[in-house]
């Protein structure tokens, strides 16, 4: 673990400078880069595996896998699809679970809270840092997928689910849209992680709990007997980004997902505030 002296004496000027230093610390960490590299390795593994194997029969494996050998851009689609259930929640859980508990475990939380009324601001800044990671993580998968796909396979017009064909520049735009969709999808989980992080001074506990919550939510989403519950699960729309690959783009799931995630952010943000504002900071 790197020494986190940078957070120990942050510039106290404004929330923006606090945010700037938070982002600098987050993306200056070797751990963050290791997480992003692990995510970028997913499309690389997929592309190399497809490249080395014979043709993939249609209809086997994850969606789009059989299209990769004809068009490298499908590496990005497949990799994002594969990383949604576990890898993205895992990395987001690590970052979000570390937000408050990490500072507490280092004994630096006290110093961050010297300023009066600093707790809300600290909570907001920490959440903003986690959100920044939510934006960067799917982008890492998408960019690595596009790059390795273009390197190993021909790149050409992409056939959408509706049978319409779009040119590579528009396909790149759709890939970025999917990355944005995934960033929104992970906002709710980040808020849950932030709340769990205020409950403990052991960051690993909060990280593990966040990942477990995401897995439980997805398992509940698979049970047809709990159909009434499904629209309320934060993972309900995680795999809905296929709607961006239709022509015309179906925005319904994007909007529903944003509303749902906003609800989770509000609920768990309020809980995190309630917990963090009433907590005795001992370390």
């Amino acid at each position: 673990m790197l020494p986190v002296d940078a957070t120990a004496k942050p510039p106290r000027g404004s929330a923006w400078s606090l945010l700037g230093s938070e982002l600098k610390v987050l993306f200056g960490r070797r751990r963050t880069w290791a997480l992003l590299l692990a995510l970028a390795a997913i499309p690389v593994l997929i592309a190399v595996a497809v490249r080395l194997s014979s043709t993939v029969p249609a209809g086997r494996g994850p969606a789009f896998l059989d299209r990769i050998s004809q068009n490298g851009l499908f590496v990005a689609f497949t990799a994002m699809l594969v990383s949604v259930p576990l890898f993205l929640p895992l990395t987001v859980g690590v970052v979000a679970g570390d937000t408050i508990a990490g500072e507490a475990s280092h004994g630096t939380l006290r110093y961050l809270l010297v300023a009066p009324a600093g707790r809300i601001r600290l909570l907001l800044v920490k959440y903003a840092g986690a959100l920044a990671f939510c934006v960067v993580a799917p982008l890492a998968v998408a960019l690595a997928g596009g790059a390795i796909g273009a390197a190993l396979f021909p790149v050409g017009p992409v056939t959408l689910l509706s049978g319409d064909v779009i040119q590579p520049p528009e396909a790149a735009l759709r890939i970025l849209l999917i990355a944005a969709y995934l960033a929104v999808s992970l906002a709710g989980l980040s808020a849950i992680g932030l709340f769990l992080s205020t409950l403990t001074v052991v960051p690993v506990g909060a990280m593990a709990a966040t990942v477990v919550v995401s897995v439980v939510s997805q398992i509940l989403g698979q049970l047809p007997q709990l159909e009434w519950l499904h629209p309320w699960l934060f993972s309900h729309y995680w795999l809905g980004f296929g709607d961006i690959l239709r022509q015309p783009v179906l925005w319904d799931s994007f909007a529903s997902n944003a509303v749902l995630q906003a609800g989770y952010v509000a609920v768990f943000g309020a809980l995190a505030y309630g917990r963090f504002a009433t907590k005795d900071i001992l370390s």
Partner: peptide
């Protein structure tokens, strides 16, 4: 049960 993301 709802099928996963596979196209299988």
């Amino acid at each position: 049960p709802a099928a996963g993301p596979s196209s299988g």
